[in-house]
Design a protein around this nucleic acid. Sequence first.
DNA 1: CTGAAAGCGCTTACAG
DNA 2: CTGAAAGCGCTTACAG
Lengths: 340, 340
Amino acid sequence: MKMSDVAKLAKVSPATVSRVLCHPELVSKETRQKVMDVINSVNYKPHAVARQFRTKETRIILVVVPDITSSFFSEVLRGIEHIAVTSGYQVILGDTENSVEREEEYINLLYQKQADGLILLTARLNKKKLEELSGQFPLVLACEYMDGLNVPTVSIDNISSARKATEHLIKLGHTKVAHITGPISIVLSRDRLKGYKQAMVSHELEIDSAYIQEGDQTFDSGYNQMLKLLSLETPPTAVFVFNDDMAMGVIKAVKDCYMSVPEDIAVVGFDHIKMSVIYEPKLTTVAQPKYEIGKQAMELLLKQITGQLMNKKKIVLKDELIIGASCGQNSATTRTLEKI
Amino acid sequence: MKMSDVAKLAKVSPATVSRVLCHPELVSKETRQKVMDVINSVNYKPHAVARQFRTKETRIILVVVPDITSSFFSEVLRGIEHIAVTSGYQVILGDTENSVEREEEYINLLYQKQADGLILLTARLNKKKLEELSGQFPLVLACEYMDGLNVPTVSIDNISSARKATEHLIKLGHTKVAHITGPISIVLSRDRLKGYKQAMVSHELEIDSAYIQEGDQTFDSGYNQMLKLLSLETPPTAVFVFNDDMAMGVIKAVKDCYMSVPEDIAVVGFDHIKMSVIYEPKLTTVAQPKYEIGKQAMELLLKQITGQLMNKKKIVLKDELIIGASCGQNSATTRTLEKI
DNA sequence: CTGAAAGCGCTTACAG
DNA sequence: CTGAAAGCGCTTACAG
């Protein structure tokens, strides 16, 4: 069943049927009714690809995500998808499984006009390529902020959040604060490391390079890096960890060494994933507005697609330090007092 | 840049360019080379939608998932996506956020020919509608098995897995075994409940209807239902729980009542999500081959799309009972001995 | 308010 | 092995 068949049945031209569907206000009430009756009675559905081909818009966007099984990204994705569907767009999922090659394969879809725009939840591509891409297609970078990059971006301020998280530990009286980073190849890791260092320096604490260990984002790597830190001659008394997965691994390592969190070691994580609330002790962690990041990224993309361009706008959303039990507010207060 | 432009530059017809791209074996080596050189030098990419429109295949499939933020579904999705991309297909993500209406909206995409096939990770639709859909479009149902439904399906045998899980508790010496179900409106919940009952009956244990509580799949609901069970006059000594999220909530409830898992209450979960290994005590749980379910679902869908139809085949994959610490293998053995 | 006609960029059956 | 031509199902500028 195609539009011309509907037209015949309704005794109008195909153009009129098309108008009823796309611009009903251009058609007289009676004609409209007549056509709608036929459409409903034969259950006609317009051929999406034909329309896309004719109008040159697919109403599809592509979302490239480094790891779809991650609790963090899947919530951002939900935000994107929800707004997309509400606005009449569909989402093609591009799970790169952390591979740059797959990232580039997906981006090919844009050149083939398979999608009207792109949201990147990961940016392993270099700055030049990203800007070039952004010049050619509607593009939004979410989660990762890249300094001096001329591409619309939605993210939190990772540097200041990391600084805040570290300062929380310092204010609790800790001086030997370690940091387990994410893969140092990604900007996020470098930003959070920067924030950690800023906090240390501004409180005149020494940054012991043995206190900085690189993890790979997984629970196990948090576990292993923590064992390393614990076996130092002077182990830290507090650790700021790149993400919650690793932070939980850190806690597990501490437990396995017959020590306690927060009594012996205070831990702060990052992301506030669902599990961070369930794990014991409940994590102190930086909550990112995951759904909101997705939502705003999609809205920014839509603005570009519809041409309400906003000169490469950056949106920085508010994060929040969620106080759990993994830093020991109370015992820390005591420590501060002892110092005084 | 379109195909006819490339053709002009290469001094051949558009048909030849098309053949170079789609059926290179039909073109002489020299012509092919000449055309490829032009394609590369101008970086021509064929217009995907035009091709889709002409060939009547989108090489897009639709995956409808009830909850993209769930660790379980996102791993199944990864399996689907991986095989899809490897086979030259793209995946449109349909996150229903557990709403039946949204499920139907997504399915509309099939009628509009936006996708070549559909994988359902949730089936709230009734049997008749599903079979009708399956008659019209390539369709695979994954995760949920529906009795007597004539639709290709990939799943585990939920009844026998649930029976096995419950029997594990019974063999450990428990006679007062409770079950916290999922939402009883979904088939999976009813199947696992069935398995639980089978195990109880076949071991001649009484099924106390107060021992069966309906949860909603979340941690919190596991927590709440467990509190209810613990406040019974004769509380159970073991609980088989519909999924791991709720099982962790159950454990938390037990702890909060100053009791221990597994000493006071033994717990078995379902799914073997990542967190189940990290949580303490480590869950005993039924592992579903999540990635494999996704993979096989996609392969089954591809077979339908390419017309290698396999009379509404069902694939039942093997699950595995993973023994953690939440059932107390040892203490249980003791109990059994005591009984003797 | 409505219709006739052109055309979006490809692929493929047909002819040579 | 190659080209000319038709046509996939829509939408929209144009004319009336």
